[in-house]
Nucleic acid binder design. Structure first.
Length: 426
RNA sequence: GGAGAAAUACUCAAGUGGCCGAAGAGGCGCCCCUGCUAAGGGUGUAGGUCGUUAACGCGGCGCGAGGGUUCAAAUCCCUCUUUCUCCGCCA
């Protein structure tokens, strides 16, 4: 959510900042809603002040033996009037708030111009695309040949865009998960959390998935309540601190979390239909930070490096791109994508997305901090990034570490988790 | 699923219709005393948010949340949420 004061004071500036995004926003509606609310508030508060004043007099009048029936009759009318306007206020309040929830974040000024992912800017690369002296296979073919990935059985038990992992495949997925969590907790100083995989509507709104992207989420009903399956650990972990005022001395707070992630992929029909790239359920280790405003961009750089490092340790070629305005998404002020080399695609494929939301989520989720006991509470900045997507890592390892005979060399750092050096058909 | 108890400020906690934004204690700030520590004495400290104002300020809201009764609600009524205890069931 944007700062309402910013919209009031620099309306044109906000308009301009949002203009480059791929969507149109009717900002004139803002003025209308805001003015209506403030007008009604002024009215009802004046009446309430009067009511409070008289209410204090009544006991005194009674004590003095005066007759209060006339005053009370007057106050009854006033009370009715207040009730009436109060109802209008809460309506106006809701209308304004609902509207504010639909406005995207303002991009950081350094975010490159551009409309699509073609306009993203490559910042750096690690290693070079893997070279093969044989015709490399796609991971879905490798997985099928080795008997470790089984989408057909998954389709039988669930539907499309699911995969059953078997044997070394399942073990590899689990090995990667543990490797990521170990690196981030032991080397990068993140505190691991293991949150629920189902969250409330309020949480989804707090991080910005709702109200705009409801069709992307899975909903679950079972005990007379509504839940959403988490699309990313960002949602439960960020919302852990909802409606809290944090101690500035504790910032930055750094969490890493494994969750399964669930996405309807409503707009992705026909895209990436084979393999592990686009599934309704996938595993991910997420990094989440809560920082002071002045440190958030430095922390974004560090977070991105933390994510990169697991790929370096795995020896997977990747590049980092800075996302342009048009590709930025709804909630981010700045975003870096880390893209891993995927031989079957013949290009780099997103495996991590590292964003600074500035105060956009903090304002929605009401997460603040105080520098010390005396200072005023301010919104924190929130950041997160995949550290990194596990399913896509599995795919990348299968493809980049494949041998001519279809076997897979296990990356050095995973061997202790896998208990073997090579994956072969058994 | 059944039965009960609770939710008040940073923490603990008093408060059953009007001088309650809310006693008291702890904590925290300052001062004194004891040569630093511990203990003691004094004194002070209340959040957050919305509106308004150039600003000092003024005003609204606020005692888990939302409704209701009333001229007036922390206090009465209803609904919900959460936590705890007991019983049942269960991975």
């Amino acid at each position: 959510m944007l700062d309402i004061k910013l919209l009031r004071n620099d309306f044109e500036g906000v308009k301009k900042a949002l203009a480059n995004r791929n969507e149109e926003f009717d900002l004139s509606l803002f003025k209308e809603l805001d003015n209506r609310r403030r007008d009604l508030l002024g009215q009802v508060e004046a009446l309430k002040a009067e009511q409070n004043k008289v209410s204090k007099m009544i006991p005194q009048m009674k004590k003095a033996g005066e007759d209060t029936t006339a005053v009370m009759a007057e106050m009854k009318e006033l009370s009715a009037k207040i009730k009436e306007i109060d109802a209008e206020v809460s309506e106006a309040d809701k209308a304004l708030n609902d509207y504010m929830l639909t406005l995207p974040n303002i991009p950081n000024p350094t975010v490159p111009e551009g409309k699509t992912d073609e306009d993203n800017v490559e910042l750096r690369k690690f290693s070079e695309p893997t070279a093969f002296d044989f015709e490399p296979k796609a991971h879905w073919d490798l997985g099928a040949d080795l008997g470790i990935l089984d989408p057909e059985t998954a389709a039988k038990i669930s539907g499309s865009r699911f995969t059953v992992y078997r044997g070394d495949g399942a073990r590899l997925e689990r090995a990667i998960m543990n490797f990521f969590l170990d690196v981030h907790t032991e080397e990068h100083g993140y505190t691991e959390v293991f949150p629920p995989f189902m969250v409330s509507r309020e949480s989804m709104t707090g991080t910005g998935q709702l109200p705009k992207f409801e069709e992307d989420a899975y909903k679950v009903y079972g005990d007379g309540r509504e839940y959403f399956l988490v699309p990313t650990a960002e949602v439960p972990v960020t919302n852990m601190y909802r409606d809290q005022i944090l101690d500035g001395a504790q910032l930055p707070i750094k969490h890493c979390a494994y969750t399964a992630c669930f996405r309807a992929e409503a707009g992705s029909a026909g895209r990436d239909t084979r393999g592990l790239i686009r599934q309704h359920q996938f595993n991910k280790v997420e990094l989440v930070k809560f920082t002071k405003p002045e440190q958030s961009y430095e922390e974004l750089e560090k977070l991105t490096r933390d994510a990169e490092e697991v790929l370096q340790k795995l020896g997977l070629p990747y590049r980092v791109v800075k996302i342009c305005i048009g590709d930025l998404g709804f909630t981010a002020a700045m975003k870096y994508d880390i893209e891993v080399w995927m031989p079957s695609y013949g290009r780099y494929v997103e495996i991590s997305s590292c964003s600074n939301f500035e105060s956009f989520q903090a304002r929605r989720a009401n997460i603040k901090y105080k520098e010390d006991a005396k200072s005023k509470a301010e919104f924190v900045h929130t950041l997160n990034g995949s550290g990194v997507a596990i399913g896509r890592t599995t795919a990348a390892i299968l493809e980049n570490y494949q041998q001519a005979d279809g076997s897979i060399i296990v990356p050095e750092v995973l061997r202790k988790y896998m208990g073997k050096d090579i994956i072969t058909k058994n």
